[in-house]
Design a protein around this nucleic acid. Structure first.
Lengths: 152, 152
DNA sequence: TCGTTTGTTCGGAGTGAGCCGAACAAACAA
DNA sequence: TTGTTTGTTCGGCTCACTCCGAACAAACGA
């Protein structure tokens, strides 16, 4: 889990905390996470916030109205990863497309080779954007099926 | 280009160097790259090595047999990025799958809930691996087409 | 009321990555 | 040969990031 987390741009501690929650049968509070992970209280606090924002874990603030906060792990990893990945890549693609358009506008009209290159870039990025958008509607199994059954 | 590079796990300098090469009509040597990018000679040397290893740029050591080395940018970004991404993700998936299998072996047989969770994980990762493998045979346009024409 | 528990915020230590400059090796020009 | 240009390697600097501990705020129990 810790290794996987780094691939997705998260910290080791995030991976570990998620892993403990994933395999824990019951919701856990911050002190319990401190015990089971060995991290400092402040670390748990910060990491749980970002994980909650991302959607990888959920915060159940109830349990009898007490102050104690409980966390549970989201089990449908696939959708979460899709979501994170999508936000991550979509934003990058969009800023890139904007940059490309700005570049096109500033291009002097006699510069053919640069124009052509920018055109290529734009095409690639537009394909990418479409792919990412489409992918977000699929489950892992569907995606697999779509790719396997496609005949060129 | 610099921003995009970071998304793919490369440094700013790598993005910049690739960008300069991408829009340059002719192959460039290290001193020329130093001029156009503003980076130090050593940085150019190091970054060009990794970019060459990845396949994003090519090294033409010839030009009249001189010592001067020339670099050109690979224009088919799609395949290269696929390749890099694939290596990146595949490795992670495989180590994860190995870890999962080791975990399964060590599990006491009476622990049903943990076994079930590990089963889920394994399924997701196997789907992921299959998807990544399949994807590598597609062009951007084909992938787009496959997803658009697939009917659940 | 006062002590205890829980959670957040802030400043700082440790660490790794990116980049630079200097030193060095190799090839060319004179 | 000697000086110049090109390319690589090495040590160090800086910056960002992760995590920790301390201080603080909020809610509870006595």
């Amino acid at each position: 889990m810790e290794q996987s987390a780094e691939v997705y741009g998260l910290s080791r501690s995030a991976g570990r905390i998620y892993g403990v929650l994933y395999f824990s049968g019951e919701p856990l509070s911050i002190p319990e996470l401190v015990d089971k992970t060995g991290y400092a209280k402040s670390t748990i606090s910060n990491v749980t916030r970002t994980l909650t924002r991302i959607g990888l874990i959920h915060r159940r603030s109830s349990e009898g109205g007490g102050r104690r906060v409980q966390y549970t792990a989201e089990r449908e990893i696939w959708f979460i990863l899709q979501d994170v990945f999508q936000q991550y890549v979509q934003r990058e693609i969009q800023t890139s497309l904007r940059t490309i358009q700005r570049a096109q506008a500033q291009l002097s009209e006699d510069n053919d080779t640069d124009a052509e290159r920018i055109e290529e870039l734009q095409q690639t990025y537009e394909d990418l954007q479409e792919i990412v958008t489409l992918t977000s509607n699929f489950t892992a199994a569907e995606l697999r099926d779509a790719l396997e059954s496609y005949d060129k």
